[in-house]
Amino acid sequence: MSTLKSFLRHPTGMIGLIVLLTVVILAVTAPWLFPDDPWDMVGAPFQPPLSEGLWLGSDMLGRDVAAGIAHGARISLIIGVISTLTSLVIGVTIGAIAGYFGGKVDEVMMRITELFQTIPGFILAILLVATIGPKISNIIFAIGIVSWPPLARLTRAEFMRLRGREFVQAAVCQGQHPLTVVLRRILPNAISPIIVTGSLAVASAILIESALSFMGLGDPNLMSWGFMIGAARTVIRQAWWMSVFPGLAILLTVLAINLVGEGLNDTLNPRISRKR
């Protein structure tokens, strides 16, 4: 409860939370706010913002830009959250194994992590999606695959720090199963920095998703912000609004998540500096 209270007193964290909740509400209510399919033509093409019934204008095929943004919010948030959960599962598992066992196991795990950090992640994501097909589940998988190394490193560091502590040693001496020690003793104590880094990872997952769909690798059945910008890019001279508004939506969402993440960091890890 005290954590919640101190977060509520964190000014930028609260601003981020309010903006983020707005985006979440927009995403949840999109089917009621804009009941039509966002792919449908609802007006004349190239209508500027504030035209009749089209607050944010229409695109080159007469689709409602505002409807696209509302429906795109769903996709961005879903992909951001689920792909981060995927990378959490991979990263925390690898980091926990490396940090708990140490030695040779640690070395092998860290070499793999290092390798994945050397590979240009975005290009790997492009390759994966191009190979297994641009379906939403594949996009989530690809983003998860390229986003786990920082989480693994963090988890490893936390596990190494906690491994030698008395309460962990005591649990080991009592003969508790390693899995119990890891899940019940170490992980709960390592969870807050993982939560913070995970929340920031949602933001970068949304950025990767938008770049993938900008490159034409989004799910062709789902309206997304990156796709809208990519499709409108060739007509930017005539119609600025088609690219500007979806981009602002990405910017605001990612900014909000980053602010919430920093707020969480300040409240959950008050002694750890912000630099990490």
């Binding site: 770049a211 990405i250 990612v254």
Partner: peptide, 22 residues
């Protein structure tokens, strides 16, 4: 830096085109 950190790189490029070229 907070703003730039949240900006998709391709969108930033497009916005710079909009300003400095168009």
């Amino acid at each position: 830096s907070l703003l730039l950190y949240a900006t998709p790189v391709f969108w930033l490029g497009l916005m710079l085109v909009l300003l400095f070229s168009v």
